[in-house]
Amino acid sequence: MAVPSIRRDDYGFFGPGSPSWKVWASPTSLIGFQRAVVLEHFDPFLAAAVADSAGIYTDPYGRLDRTLAYFLTVAVADGRTAVEASDVLMRVHARAKGIEPITGARYSANNPDSQLWIHVTGWHSVLKCYERYGPGPLSATEEARFWAEARIAAELQTCRPADVPASRDEVRDYFATVRARLCTSERADRAMRYLLFTPRDKGVRLWAGSRLLAPAAIATLPKWMRRLGRFDQPAAVDAAVVPAARALVKALSVRNFGPAVAVARYIAPTTAEVLAAHLRADPPAQRRTVTPAEVRERLPVRA
């Protein structure tokens, strides 16, 4: 999919020099994304929604690629493009409703608690992998700004932005709070293993790409999550994967991320086009950032 321009109007919600631009546009976001979509299945309602829709099984390239492209679009595109992408995603999620088989309760992919879990694990995962395998930890000022920007991005979802953690300590508190209601099931286990180690019959690209990223993604997870998901790996693998992943990320980051775009086109082509459009974008019509509320005021009212 060609993306001719993603910054026609403005610099979007964060702008040049923002930690969100740095973290989400880094090659490490591929590892962080795999980490996040695996963790998504610890929420039984999201696991049910994914299983019932079966999108990751019938169209794994499209389903995963579009999701990562959405996150990247929100981070780096102009406000209008980001809001319109969000509106499309919310309409798709609105159709994902059903009965969660463990509890017998109804689920909705747009449920605010589930949306918060997706949002926090997504933003935390890309930051964690950026720190472990990329340039390293953000400064204290940048980290505070990163979580402030995560709250702004949450305005495009159904969760309350005020519920998004505002610091590393608040992220830990959030995980401690929700841990008691996280679980796995036969369908969740199937999905997590599928995402970590995609079968070869889904194509060599996904088969090879998932296995290349999986050890690095798992190495960033705490032991309790690995035990819960039953996908732990030896400490020796954890130790070996760090220098290997760092070397790969460094190689992908040269020449203005040219190698990263090439690899992304092989694994996630829509995401690659968003990244390429971001890297080559000319200055927008208005060289300033905007808020989601400001953008929504300008958009035509949908009948």
Rank of each mutant, 00 (worst) to 15 (best):
D173W: 00
C183L: 10
L228N: 07
Y194I: 02
R179N: 06
A176M: 05
E155P: 08
V204M: 11
A162V: 08
T158M: 04
C183G: 15
R200Q: 13
L182H: 01
S167T: 13
F175G: 05
R187I: 14
S210N: 07
R227M: 07
G209R: 09
R211E: 01
V178R: 02
A166T: 14
Q157M: 10
P199W: 11
T184N: 01
Y174D: 11
Q157Y: 12
D163A: 14
L206S: 14
R187S: 14
Y174H: 09
A154C: 10
R187C: 02
L156S: 06
R211F: 08
R226S: 06
L182N: 08
D201H: 12
A188W: 00
L212E: 00
A217H: 04
D201L: 08
P165Y: 08
R160T: 03
V178D: 14
G203D: 04
A216C: 05
A216F: 01
W207V: 06
A162Q: 12
R200Y: 10
R187P: 02
A162I: 01
E186L: 09
S210F: 03
S167N: 05
T158V: 09
K202G: 11
T198A: 14
R160C: 04
P161L: 03
L195T: 01
P165E: 10
Y194R: 11
P222F: 10
D201C: 08
W207I: 10
A180I: 07
G209H: 08
